[in-house]
Design a protein around this nucleic acid. Structure first.
Lengths: 155, 155
DNA sequence: CAAGATAGACAACCAGGTTCACTATTACCG
DNA sequence: CGGTAATAGTGAACCTGGTTGTCTATCTTG
């Protein structure tokens, strides 16, 4: 029959948990040869997927304008994570595809996230972690990609 | 004996949970007369506290440069949430203090966060919510203010 | 009292987002 | 079949909120 914590702790803890995972991911990615990876890069590349996509499509997936998506693609291209080729069936379109380096980054990220999850499981217990994930699924939207991550904070 | 979800779901769910709470907070704040409140404003004002602070101090608390803290204070000042007065014992310093409107916003935020937490409790159960918070405390840093919230995502 | 530290402010820059405007290409329909 | 409408990409101008560097004014201290 303990007293409830103040309501503002919950969002803070959620955000801190997110930050801890993301920070550790990128520290480890840097060690594994991806020092320029940024939090949103992996996320965007996941949205690009193995099939490739276009700027307009990516913008829709991420919930940002096509111009913003275009800028992000440019950055990723400079870093060598994606490449663009024109679509021969529709010469307006430019297909964005992951390069081997981009795929490597995603593969490593997946492995690191699994390791981090295992570390959490070791701390709080396997059952509790699964319960935590199940509970969060109940109070969050299903569509995991429409984070509107970029820019949501200042808007 | 179910299969573990992929590790990348955990950070996403944490972030989504955070976003849901913050978005609902600001929708409700807008309804209650604070339509210009932004996610970081409440956070920064919490860091300013009832005692007041200075730009340099605030920057240290938040983990940003004093210039960035100064810009944020300007914004808050334009919105009428804080005011600056010079310190008579050290005329270099300018003390930043919450205005009544700023205090009102914080008070309302606290109440709304409590309500939102209660809604989560109704969905996943009181015990489970407490367990979730307790577990997150185990895997996140104690110092809740050094979020480095502003700008961490792009850096 | 001179030298160093500190507070605040200004400028230039960067990242990433927005909207508006424009071109090139494709799709549709009378 | 051809003209109109829709779509893909790009550029420009602007906003926010961060950064570093520099400068002045004001303590603080040896």
């Amino acid at each position: 029959m303990s007293i409830d914590p103040p309501g503002f702790e919950l969002p803070l803890r959620l955000f801190l948990g997110f930050r801890v995972l993301i920070d550790e991911l990128h520290a480890e990615l840097a060690r594994q040869g991806h020092p320029h990876a940024r939090p949103m890069h992996g996320f965007v590349m996941q949205a690009i997927g193995t099939e490739g996509t276009t700027a307009v499509e990516l913008g829709r997936t991420l919930g940002v304008s096509k111009q913003a998506a275009g800028k992000t693609i440019e950055t990723l291209e400079r870093l060598g994570y994606v490449e663009r080729a024109r679509d021969h069936r529709d010469t307006r379109r430019k297909i964005v595809r992951l390069t081997p380096s981009g795929v490597d980054m995603l593969v490593r990220s997946a492995r690191i996230f699994d390791d981090l999850r295992a570390r959490w499981a070791a701390v709080i217990g396997d059952e509790r972690l699964r319960a935590l994930e199940a509970d969060l699924r109940k109070v969050t939207p299903q569509d995991v990609f429409r984070l509107d991550v970029p820019g949501w904070f200042g808007a």
